[in-house]
Design a protein around this nucleic acid. Structure first.
Length: 780
DNA sequence: CAGGCCGTGCTTTTT
DNA sequence: GCACGGCCTG
């Protein structure tokens, strides 16, 4: 029975694993931290470990594997299914897991089990309403920005009351004051709508754990083995969920790579993984350092780059793959030559039969960089796909249909109500809608009920009364007739509301597309019906106590795009560095390795070391996607927001040994930073300092404080009548993007005062600025 | 009440 | 350079 490796059978023999991989797979009890370098077979280790647990007596339902994305969850579930046919192991995203927990314990949090999950547009709509209630200008404070702030607070586990309190102690920041008012009101509005936003799904579970210790313990005991992938990307809320599930049963296995943490900006705390050993006593630490993906040259370059990060756990990456070609820096004149050059290289490789189109990936820091590249690919007739998230479920027609379903399922869903009450047009305008919503709130009844009683509402438009009653009775009737099939329900719904009539007789291509999309939704519903039925048969009772409508809506709100990138589809892939994570390609181009682009301007402006390091990790992630060939590119001149700008050498380029290929001899870019080595030493010495460390000054593009811009100086003077010091003709000024220059001319007065500046780039560009609106700074 | 025009303001993205 | 939002007009 026992084979040389110890236990094992045909399915999970361990011979194909490296020693550290094997160690991770066979570890059973107690906390386990797997630091997995890029291309080190991490997913394989997780799935094999799950199989190993189950084959050694752990019940499949005692295992919980958590990922971030649906894609990762599906892949993992598939591979577990191959190893353990017919067994149900819970592999889920954080959000899906929480949605389910919440459903079962909704009442403990003041929700009903048929709660709705609000997506970003619902959130924005609700915020808009809440803000106008509070008389807050949505022009000055755009709801999506306020929403982003609230989201960030939720990710950081800050509750409305706490924020209000914390804010009262602070003085000054206007934006915070607004958010402090909006946040509690927004939460109240969500509760009234029996709805949660994405962040609430997680936050409510933490609250549940906090307020109902017995529920926490019950879940903790039930999921004896918990696995969390990409642990370096967890934020504070996710961290608390994981901890909550692992107090009593500390069989927690986390995998991740601090060097690939690139989501700090949305609240991910790299600390979570760095401090894992402190959080859990007797942690077994395993490093997966053997890279199976890249050539030695690629790995060497990537490793030399990441070595410059100070805050990291050391890893010694190595590979047994071939030496490979050196990593090259391609230096072009401008973005057009860059794009053409890359297109030509790819075409040549494909024409000669060495490569196929799908071997290539082109990565960039910001989406804007894809434009020039796309044009070139079109010129060369190269097939390509861009990974960008125009999600199926975000399309207006899909959202409309789903909103009907949402409203009949949760008649308090105000966002859904507003979306469909006058669509198709029923003569219930904004005013009538607001009257209905206000009346529902006052009478404490749901939105469908208030529609039936619209007649009783004072000053309600007559036309709207009948329409509202008809609208509500259609939905209530559908609710009664529901026979368990979502597809039938949607069909009836479309028939009775006449929603599709607006496009049915149109010749427009886009209207055809809309109809086709709705058709696709019906197919998805039919598929769901079948799967739901199967699950019922499989389990006797449903695995889950929620009805099909709740489950269907949940799956649509938590599903993102229909797998936007198709592998092996004979096309070149274009994507941001962020979306490249987790993928691999034989040949990778990383575009625009230039100061202010990579590292990004915003990271430099912040002056924070941790932001600079995240940019470095971003490049590291990009580089380690490459299997055979890796090219970094830069230009001398690049169009930025419509203006051509001279570029600056990225600090990252100085951190690696690269072969530099100049496509064209052209203008010399500013010399590499001579003080670099010294700076690095200084930075290293500071490594033990706290988090908010800033990097040494010369990194900052603009050494002068913001208060010194012409705009600020002008606004600071009485009425702005005088010319601010430092802007006389002939004085030297600096512009954050254009660089330094000399004032040629001054015109106008007060807010209309303009200055014309000749910059010191090679064409001596002349630019005229409105002094009160530009970031020009005087020098000296 | 919808459509067009003007001004503004700009990373990265999942759920 | 472009996209989105707000405001104004037909």
């Amino acid at each position: 029975m026992a084979c040389p490796e110890g236990v094992g059978n045909r399915v999970t023999g361990l011979r194909d694993l490296t020693p550290p991989q094997k160690e991770a797979v066979t570890h059973v009890d107690g906390p386990l931290l797997v630091l997995a370098g890029p291309g080190s077979g991490k997913t394989r280790v997780i799935t094999r470990r799950i199989a190993h647990l189950v084959q050694h007596g752990v019940n499949p339902w005692e295992v919980l594997a958590i990922t971030f994305t649906n894609k990762a969850a599906n892949e993992m579930a598939e591979r577990v299914q191959e190893l353990l046919p017919g067994m149900r192991v819970w592999v889920s995203t954080f959000h899906r897991f929480c949605a389910r927990v919440l459903r079962q314990h909704a009442s403990a949090l003041g929700l009903q089990p048929n709660y709705t999950i609000f997506d970003m547009s619902d959130q924005r709509q609700l915020l808009r309403a809440v803000m106008s209630d509070l008389d807050i200008s949505t022009t000055h404070f755009p709801p999506h920005k306020v929403g982003a702030r609230i989201s960030r607070l939720k990710n950081d586990l800050v509750l409305p009351e706490e924020y209000l309190q914390r804010h009262e102690e602070m003085v000054g920041n206007h934006y915070d004051a607004i958010v402090a008012r909006v946040y509690p009101a927004y939460q109240q509005a969500l509760l009234r709508a029996n709805a949660v936003d994405f962040d609430d799904l997680l936050l409510h579970v933490v609250r549940l754990f906090d307020e109902c210790p017995e529920i926490r313990e019950q879940l903790d005991r039930r999921f004896r083995y918990v696995l969390v992938d990409e642990y370096q990307d967890t934020n504070l809320v996710q961290y608390m969920i994981v901890r909550g599930l692992c107090c009593n049963e500390q069989n927690l296995c986390v995998t991740g790579d601090p060097d690939q943490s690139i989501y700090g900006w949305r609240g991910a705390r790299i600390k979570n993984i760095l401090q894992f050993e402190e959080d859990f006593a007797d942690t077994r630490l395993i490093r997966l350092e053997h890279n199976f993906r890249s050539t030695k040259e690629i790995l060497k370059a990537a490793d030399s780059l990441i070595q410059h990060n100070v805050k990291r756990l050391h890893k010694e990456l190595f590979t047994e793959n071939e030496e490979g070609a050196p990593v090259e820096l391609l230096w072009f004149d401008d973005e057009r030559t860059e794009a053409d050059g890359i297109a030509q290289m790819m075409k040549q490789a494909v024409d000669s039969g060495d490569r196929t189109w799908s071997d290539f990936a082109i990565c960039y820091r910001t989406n804007a960089l894809s434009r020039a590249m796309e044009r070139a690919l079109a010129r060369y007739s190269i097939p390509y796909q861009v990974a960008s998230g125009v999600a199926f479920y975000d399309r207006a027609e899909i959202k409309d249909v789903l909103s009907y379903l949402r409203l009949l399922h949760n008649p308090n869903d105000v966002a859904a109500f507003q979306r469909v009450i006058n669509n198709p047009l029923r003569g219930i305008g904004k005013t009538s809608q607001n009257r209905l919503i206000a009346a529902a709130r006052e009478d404490n009844v749901n939105l469908l009920e208030i529609c039936l009683r619209a007649k009783e509402i004072p000053r309600m438009a007559k036309r709207g009364v009948g329409a509202a009653r008809k609208f509500a009775s259609i939905l209530l009737n559908l609710q009664d007739k529901f026979d368990g099939s979502i597809e039938n329900l949607l069909q009836d719904l479309l028939g009775q509301t006449g929603y599709l009539d607006q496009w049915k007789y149109s010749d427009l291509e886009e209207d055809h597309e809309r109809l086709a999309n709705v058709e696709e939704l019906l197919t998805a519903a039919a598929q769901f019906d079948r799967a739901y039925e199967e699950e019922l048969e499989d389990n006797g009772e449903a695995l889950d106590d929620a009805g099909p409508i709740q489950r269907f809506l949940e799956s649509t709100s938590l599903a993102s795009e229909v797998d936007s990138l198709e592998s092996a589809s004979g096309q070149v892939s274009l994507m941001t560095l962020h979306s490249a994570k987790g993928l691999e390609f034989p040949v990778v181009f990383v575009l625009g390795v230039e100061q202010n682009l990579l590292p990004h301007e915003r990271a430099l402006e912040s002056g924070e070391l941790k932001e600079l390091e995240e940019e470095r990790r971003l490049l590291f992630v990009g580089m380690t996607r490459a299997q055979k060939m890796l090219y970094l590119t830069r230009t001398s001149q690049r169009e930025f927001r419509g203006r051509p700008l001279s570029t600056i050498t990225s600090v990252f380029l100085n951190e690696m040994d690269l072969t530099i290929t100049r496509e064209n001899e052209s203008t010399q870019s500013p010399a590499p930073d001579l003080e670099w080595k010294q700076l690095l030493e200084k930075t290293r010495k500071r490594r033990d300092d706290n988090d908010d460390e800033s990097f040494p000054q010369p990194f900052k593009q603009f050494g002068l404080p913001k208060m010194m811009t012409g705009a600020d100086l002008l606004n600071g003077t009485a009425g702005g009548k005088e010319l601010p010091v430092g802007f006389a003709v002939g004085s030297r000024v600096r512009h954050p993007r254009m660089g330094t220059g000399t004032v040629l001319k001054v015109d106008g007065f007060g807010a209309r005062r303009t200055v014309t500046v000749e910059f010191e780039d090679e064409d001596a560009t002349e630019e005229t600025f409105i002094l009160s609106k530009c970031p020009l700074q005087p020098i000296g």
